[in-house]
Amino acid sequence: MRELWKLFELFFKIGLFTFGGGYAMLPLLRAEVVEKRKFITEQELLDLYSIGQCTPGIISINVATFIGYQQKKIWGAVAATLGIVLPSVIIITLLASVLQKFTDNRYVAYAFAGIRVCVAALIADVVYDLAKKNLNNYFAAAIFIAAMILLVWLDISAVLLVLLAGMVALAAGEIKRIRK
């Protein structure tokens, strides 16, 4: 029970002090689970991140569940995941209820009009970085262009697009293997 509480506490702290999640969480996670508590080694943490990337779901949740399970099986996984999620749920719920009361205010509306432009710029910034990292071969570029066409003209749903892209890539990989 004490160890479960410790897992919960640890991930609550990580959830509370990281902005952005995923990779932003890595330095704090390393300091706590690798250096201080020695739950896992540095290499295991990096492996865990690559597993988190190729399994469905939000990376930070995947990492929390995995470490929790490793330490204390199912209840450890539940305690760690609850810990990382709880700060978000509390803070956002409080903030959302406050925000709803202020959206009619003229100045708040101006501020959010500015903020929305900033969100567009933030997304453009992320897209640029991701494109540089991921669109480095013809196959990836072809999938990207096909996906854009499906989105813009056919308004395909996000779930369907992910399924389709995964199946096409799987088929392409198998064909390549058979040819060899």
Binding site: V117, V119, A120, A124, L130, F144, A165, G166, A169, G173
Partner: peptide
């Protein structure tokens, strides 16, 4: 290998999804 192959297709598709969402944000904000 198979998981790796599937992901090699999903990553560019996710990029397209994020770009498309960005265009929708741009349309209402700019």
């Amino acid at each position: 290998v198979r998981v790796h192959n599937v992901l090699s297709g999903i990553r560019p598709a996710v990029l397209a999804l994020i770009l498309y969402a960005g265009l929708q944000v741009a349309k209402i904000s700019i």
